[in-house]
Amino acid sequence: MGRGRAVVSLTVDLVIFTVRAEQLQVLLVERGNEPFRGQLALPGGYLRGAETLEEAAVRELWEETQLDGARLHLEQLRTYSDPRRDPRGRVVTTAYLALGADLPTPSAGTDAKEASWMPVRDVLEEGFLAFDHGVILRDGLERARAKLEYTSIATVFCSEPFTIGELRRVYEVIWGIPLDPSNFRRKLTRAEGFLEPTGKFRTSTVGRPAALYSRGSAPLLMPPFLRAQENSLPSAGT
């Protein structure tokens, strides 16, 4: 092994998920510069000056896609440090997971030629992302799936107010499995502080009016709502 200090550059990358057209979709950019010019990648870039990692993530999100990080749930995913992950040299990246409800069509900024939403399933099946972004995307997907089991994060994907059916569809799209409507309703409405009834209803052309809910104050889902392990990978959406 080599000795001495490595010259390291620091970057941030973002795995940004939303549910559009009843599919889990991820925001990708077409790279405008080498390496991998013209190839699709996760939004991201270099850490600047006195920035924190989170500040860099929010800035890169705006510069590359014109999306406001204040609209999203944003959390650190993990750090990737494989010496061979970037052909430009030793580049260590910290990835962030960002989630939002039916986010708008992005506009590419100065650092990207194009920015667009793509179904996660298609991206994983094709495996065409630059750098190690396919690995980062899979890690982000598994984090999102796991958090649905024990936190209230699923409601982030719903525009308030929402129905139980709309919330169930979020779970089905992200987990990639169908869920029994009655069982889902029973478990989620009994979870302490998870949902708040609004007392209002949404009418439709068929069936009874659907009760409307808003997000509760509880950050954790108690008891947890566990997915079937054999169905947890690798599909995403329908």
Rank of each mutant, 00 (worst) to 15 (best):
V7F: 12
V8E: 13
L10S: 13
V15C: 13
F17L: 14
F17D: 05
V19L: 14
R20H: 05
Q23E: 15
Q25N: 05
F36R: 05
G38Q: 09
R48D: 13
A50E: 15
E51H: 10
A57F: 04
A57D: 11
E63I: 02
T65N: 06
L67C: 02
G69M: 06
R71P: 00
L74F: 06
Q76T: 09
Y80T: 00
R88D: 13
R88L: 12
V92T: 13
D102I: 01
P106W: 01
P106Y: 00
S116R: 15
V120F: 11
V123C: 14
E126A: 15
L129S: 09
D132V: 13
L137D: 06
R143Y: 01
L148G: 02
A154Y: 05
F157E: 05
C158Y: 01
S159P: 00
S159M: 08
R169G: 04
Y171W: 09
I174G: 01
P178W: 02
R185F: 03
L188N: 04
R190G: 07
K200P: 10
T203H: 14
G207E: 10
A211K: 12
A211Q: 13
L212D: 08
L212W: 04
Y213G: 01
A218C: 08
P219G: 01
P219C: 06
L221D: 08
R227A: 15
A228L: 14
S235R: 11
G237Y: 05
T238N: 10
